[in-house]
Design a protein around this nucleic acid. Structure first.
Length: 441
DNA sequence: CGTATTTGACCTGCGC
DNA sequence: GCGCAGGTCAAATACG
C-alpha cells in the first residue's frame, strides 16, 4: 500500500499512529502490570493453599490424636469435642450447646447432624443415617409451606458429589444465615433485589433498630434479611440474609445471592469439609452447581457461630482494611474485606454480572443504587485476595499441587462454565471495589 | 387508589 | 412456669 498521502493527511496519520502507539504502549504497560500482579497473586494463592492444607492436616492430626478411641463414633465425639475452637467447626453439632437442645434436636431431626468434619472416614458412622433423617428429606419444610424453597440445607445435600470427602449432607442445621458487614450510609445495602420492610425492632444491646425485610421479587420467596447498624460504628451496616430465592434474579442480585448462599453453604457444610457446595437445588440454579466442578466453596475456616441452634451464621466483613485478608476466628468473622480481581479478566463475561454493591449503596457504586447492569469494572488493580474465593481456588489447586497452570485453567473453566461461580466472584469483587470506592471518595 | 412503611401487639423459643 | 428477647403480623399511616 502506498502510504504517501498528502502532507496533511500524513500528519494526521502520524498523529493517529502516534496516539495509537501511545495507547498500545500504555495498554502494554497495563498488561505488564496486570501480569505481574497476576503472578504475585498466583504465588499468594499457592502459598495460601499450602498453608491451608498444612493447617488442615494439622487439624486432622489433632483430632485424630484426641479421639483415637472412637474412630467410628462421631456423634459421641461431638460431645467430647467441646473445645471452643472446634465449636464453630462442627456445624450442627452439639458443641457449646446445652444437652437439652441436643436432645430436642435429636428428637426432632433424628439425631446428629453429622456435620462435623468427616475426619477421615471415621465420622461416617453416625452420619450416615442422619442425612436423611427426615423421611421426606425436609426438616424444615413443614412450616415453610412449600414456597418450594427450603433453605439450602435441606435438599442440597444430595450432595456428595462424586467422591470428594463429602461428609454428608448435613441435615440438621436448619437455616444458615449470612451476615455481611459493610460500610454503608444508605439505609440498606443495594443487593439488586427488591425488599419490603415488614418489621422493625430495637434489639437488645444495640440502640439502632433492626429492620426486617422480605424479598418481594416473587410473592412466595422465602428470603429475608435483617438490617441493623453496628452500635459501635453506625456507618457499618450489618445485613443478615436468610433463605434462598426461589425465583430467577437479576444478574446483580443473583451475584449477591449466590455469594451469600455460598457463604451459607459453607456455614452449613462446615469449614473444612467439602460439604455440598452451593445451595439448594430448589433455586433457580441448576443442580449441577452443587458440584461446581469439583470445588467446594469454603473458606479456610469460616467462622460460623450459632446464634441459635439452628442458625449458624457466617459473617463476611467487608469493612476491614483491604490489605490483610484473614479469618477472624475469635469474632467469628470472615474477613473478606478484599476481594481480588486479579487475573480473572479471562472471563470478561464475569464483568457482566457485576452486581449491586455490597458496600455503600449510596456512595460507592452508589450513585446508582440499583446498578443492575453495571458492567464491568473488574478493576485489575486490587490485589489482596480474599479468603472466600481463595478457599474456592484452593480446592482447585489441591488436587495437583504446584500447578499454577492448573489453577489458572481451573479458574477459567469454573468461570466459563459455571455462572454461579462467575456471579459470586463478580459480586465479591464488585462489592469490594464498590465499598472501597466509597471509602476513597 | 394502590403500594410501601411504620409501629404496637402478638407469637415463639430460650434461659432461669 | 415465667420473663425476656427476637421475630412476625396486621392495622394504621404515609406516599406517589
Amino acid at each position: 500500500m502506498d502510504m504517501s498521502p498528502r502532507p496533511s493527511s500524513c500528519k494526521h496519520d502520524n498523529s493517529n499512529t502516534n496516539s495509537q502507539d501511545n495507547q498500545l504502549e500504555s495498554i502494554n504497560a497495563e498488561m505488564g502490570e496486570a501480569r505481574e500482579e497476576n503472578e504475585r497473586l498466583k504465588a499468594f494463592l499457592a502459598q495460601m493453599a499450602k498453608d491451608y492444607q498444612s493447617l488442615q492436616m494439622h487439624f486432622l492430626d489433632i483430632v485424630q490424636k484426641e479421639h483415637p478411641k472412637k474412630p467410628a463414633e462421631t456423634s459421641s465425639t461431638l460431645e467430647d469435642v467441646e473445645e471452643p475452637e472446634l465449636v464453630s467447626l462442627s456445624l450442627g453439632a452439639s458443641a457449646g450447646r446445652s444437652r437439652k437442645e441436643e436432645e430436642k434436636r435429636k428428637t426432632n431431626e433424628g439425631l446428629t447432624l453429622g456435620l462435623h468434619y468427616k475426619i477421615d472416614g471415621s465420622s461416617s458412622s453416625r452420619s450416615e443415617p442422619p442425612s436423611n433423617l427426615n423421611p421426606d428429606g425436609s426438616f424444615e419444610e413443614p412450616q415453610e409451606e412449600d414456597t418450594g424453597e427450603p433453605w439450602p440445607p435441606n435438599k442440597t445435600i444430595e450432595s456428595s458429589r462424586n467422591g470428594e470427602d463429602v461428609v454428608l449432607p448435613q441435615p440438621p442445621v436448619k437455616r444458615a444465615r449470612v451476615s455481611v458487614r459493610a460500610r454503608c450510609h444508605a439505609p440498606t445495602m443495594n443487593d439488586g433485589c427488591q425488599w419490603r420492610k415488614y418489621g422493625q425492632k430495637t434489639a437488645k444491646g444495640n440502640p439502632c433498630p433492626r429492620a426486617y425485610y422480605r424479598c418481594t421479587v416473587a410473592p412466595a420467596c422465602p428470603v429475608k434479611k435483617q438490617v441493623q447498624r453496628c452500635a459501635e460504628d453506625t456507618s457499618i451496616l450489618i445485613t443478615t440474609y436468610e433463605g434462598e430465592h426461589n425465583h430467577p434474579l437479576p444478574m446483580s442480585a443473583a451475584a449477591m445471592a449466590s455469594t451469600t448462599l455460598a457463604a451459607a453453604s459453607m456455614a452449613i457444610s462446615g469449614s473444612s469439609t467439602s460439604g455440598p457446595a452451593f445451595g439448594s437445588p430448589v433455586s433457580s440454579t441448576t443442580t449441577s452447581t452443587a458440584n461446581l466442578h469439583g470445588f467446594s466453596l469454603h473458606p479456610p475456616n469460616p467462622s460460623i457461630h450459632y446464634s441459635s441452634p439452628y442458625h449458624p451464621t457466617i459473617t463476611i466483613d467487608l469493612t476491614a482494611p483491604s490489605s490483610t485478608p484473614h479469618v477472624n476466628f475469635s469474632s467469628n468473622i470472615i474477613d473478606s474485606s478484599s476481594y481480588s480481581s486479579t487475573s480473572l479478566n479471562s472471563s470478561s463475561s464475569a464483568s457482566n454480572t457485576v452486581p449491586a454493591s455490597w458496600g455503600d449503596g449510596s456512595s460507592s457504586y452508589g450513585a446508582q443504587p440499583c446498578n443492575k447492569s453495571h458492567t464491568g469494572s473488574l478493576n485489575l488493580g486490587r490485589q489482596t485476595p480474599d479468603s472466600f474465593f481463595q478457599s474456592y481456588l484452593r480446592r482447585a489447586t489441591s488436587p495437583t499441587p504446584g500447578g499454577q497452570h492448573f489453577l489458572t485453567d481451573t479458574i477459567a473453566k469454573a468461570i466459563v462454565s459455571d455462572p454461579r461461580f462467575r456471579s459470586s466472584l463478580a459480586a465479591a469483587i464488585s462489592s469490594h471495589v464498590g465499598s472501597r470506592g466509597a471509602q476513597e471518595s
